[in-house]
Design a protein around this nucleic acid. Sequence first.
DNA 1: GCACTACAGATTGTATACAAGCTCTTGTCA
DNA 2: TGACAAGAGCTTGTATACAATCTGTAGTGC
Lengths: 247, 247
Amino acid sequence: MALPNETQRGTSQSLKALLGLRDLVYSGEVAPGERLTEISVSERLGLSRTPVRAALARLGREGILEAIPSGGYAVRTFTAADVHDAIELRGVLEGTAARLAAERGVSCSDIDAFKAIVRRLDTIVGTTPAELDFSAYVSANAQFHDMLAVLSGSKVLQREIEHVLHLPFAGPSAFLNAQTDMPEFRTSLISGQAQHRAIAHAIEMREGARAEAVAREHARLARLNLDVVIRDSALAERVPGLRLVSG
Amino acid sequence: MALPNETQRGTSQSLKALLGLRDLVYSGEVAPGERLTEISVSERLGLSRTPVRAALARLGREGILEAIPSGGYAVRTFTAADVHDAIELRGVLEGTAARLAAERGVSCSDIDAFKAIVRRLDTIVGTTPAELDFSAYVSANAQFHDMLAVLSGSKVLQREIEHVLHLPFAGPSAFLNAQTDMPEFRTSLISGQAQHRAIAHAIEMREGARAEAVAREHARLARLNLDVVIRDSALAERVPGLRLVSG
DNA sequence: GCACTACAGATTGTATACAAGCTCTTGTCA
DNA sequence: TGACAAGAGCTTGTATACAATCTGTAGTGC
């Protein structure tokens, strides 16, 4: 089984172990702080120890699991402060990506593609709340953030941003699905879109400081959303892994 | 073998595989771009495939190796731009650490300990070039940068900084040992130390913006040093893994 | 001469057997 | 009654056998 890239590598069992274990954690099937041994996980997932071992090590380095001194791993619990910090960190890194893109300049075709994503977001956000295509927004939003990392022109930075996005709740759309029916949601959508436009404009105008500042502030929206969600335990249920938070 | 923390885990063979493989790469024993298979590495190191496999996967995620589509890994080659970006990234993250430390405030005992490190660096740098205790400088400098990450008060950021320091040549003392006898070295040491003092002062005075700006600029010293080293191939020999750069 | 197919070799994926050590419990002795 | 020691069980570390498949090459047919 010589399989191509890292995502495909381990078509069957390894991938099953990784996704299965991640799901076990995020779904709350294993309690935060609960101990996970290679054997118990392999029995739960119906796999042998080898792929499970790899998955445990990987999630351990991703930060979702924590190595226990006496052996095995524990589901890590996060405090609200940890989530705040993760979001702040994303803001800093995306701000750097925006600044580098502005400073170093991007090609016409790249900036055009970027602006096309912004326009698509414009039309999605421009509809009435009732007919908002939510999944289209999440998808286009993810594209915007992906492309921002690419525009930085730095593979190193791109890789690091991807790494931070693996941290729980740091993603740009992490808390959105809990809030589709809240009034705050609509306003945060609108101001977020204004920031998207400002970032694209600043990059095009090669205004590095502005691009960085706006991108940083943009991440703060997620912090606001987090605070809203945390205050309302009914909403918290709808965010996949919020069970891991608070400890 | 239920061994405690992550560094100890795998006392014998796993650690041997990790260190051995890392050494194989940094020493230039395997050429940049050369293909590494589990079997060839395990034969070279005299280990079985299992620990080698783990080491390959780990270095792959650290960024030193690169997965080959047809299977196996290749020693990754870095461009000077990659190294520049890695250093820039360290500056951004350490700048954030300094800003957070300033904004959130640090305890008296912490700031005292931090200033003690700065004073130690002062005395080391204050000597004549001839009697400079080089290894003491490297050690105290590492302590300064470690503690800066701790002072941020953010485990998430601390972890991320540690992650970036694993990138080749991103460390704060990466290029120093190539330059002990150069005049540029002395000036960069002196201005670097001025920046250390300024960072500590800014944190104490809770001047977040200043702390961030100085810490960022501080990382730029490493970029200057890199440029000096790269221009002089004789110096490049003395930096362990500079063979990986330029491609 | 070119293209397609089939086979062989190489390489990773997976499972499992065995080794080693840590922890916890239980029993005994002072 | 308390403390220490010994042993059992659990858990991970390591090695290896076997499976699956991908790549490259060679041969044949059109």
